[in-house]
């Protein structure tokens, strides 16, 4: 629904610019909350220090936008020597482990709404958003396998466990999405 509402407000503004009539949204920001069905109308000021349109611009031609937008959060561990590869496991390998009947722990760190769509049999739900609360329920002696949707969030959870002294950890490469693609074709994909 929301894209329709926002897209049509944009279409209305585009027509008004062409027409040169009415009051345009220049200098105003509409914040629309569809759940509350509430509109806020904020006044926007030009920033005199803006790097593009300010008094002393530093951006005077188009830049490398990929580099500009791919700056990680400071201390997010992009440059440390943690070897993620070492902790990764392919879907086929994980399927073998689960089928072997070995006593292992499988942890799903996605959120409840994603769990409700699909999950891997034998998994326990421990959403990343509240992962710290779940850590005490895990045993460092167990073999622990983690997964999420694509493998990013579960790697974060894995690193939290590694910080807590856990060692027998593996992260499912490609997450449940690749699992559905390669191992369980009946699983819905989202």
């Amino acid at each position: 629904m929301l894209p329709g509402t926002v897209g049509l407000m944009q279409a209305t503004e585009a027509l008004k610019l062409i027409l040169g009539k009415g009051r345009s949204l220049i200098g105003r920001l509409i914040l629309f909350d569809a759940l509350k069905m509430n509109f806020k109308n904020l006044k926007l000021e030009k920033d005199p220090n803006c790097e593009l349109c300010g008094i002393k611009p530093t951006i005077t031609e188009l830049i490398d936008y990929e580099a500009f937008c791919n700056v990680p959060m400071p201390g997010a561990g992009q440059n440390d020597d943690f070897d993620e590869e070492e902790y990764s496991i392919e879907p086929a390998e994980l399927a073998e482990v689960l089928n072997s009947g070995r006593d292992v722990v499988l942890v799903d760190v996605r959120e409840q709404s994603e769990w409700d769509i699909c999950y891997i049999e034998k998994a326990q739900l421990m959403p990343l958003s509240e992962f710290e609360e779940h850590i005490p329920s895990l045993n460092p002696d167990d073999e622990i396998y983690l997964y999420c949707y694509k493998g990013m969030r579960s790697m974060k959870a894995l690193r939290q466990l590694e910080d807590e002294g856990f060692t027998k950890l593996r992260n499912l490469t490609g997450g449940i999405d690749r699992w559905a693609e390669e191992i369980d074709s009946d699983m819905p994909r989202y």
Binding site: L25, A34, K46, C53
Partner: peptide
């Protein structure tokens, strides 16, 4: 559930 809409025309007036 939230949307943002505005018009930028900094060459004319207002912010970018």
């Amino acid at each position: 559930f939230e949307g943002q809409i505005t018009v930028f025309h900094p060459n004319h007036e207002g912010p970018c």
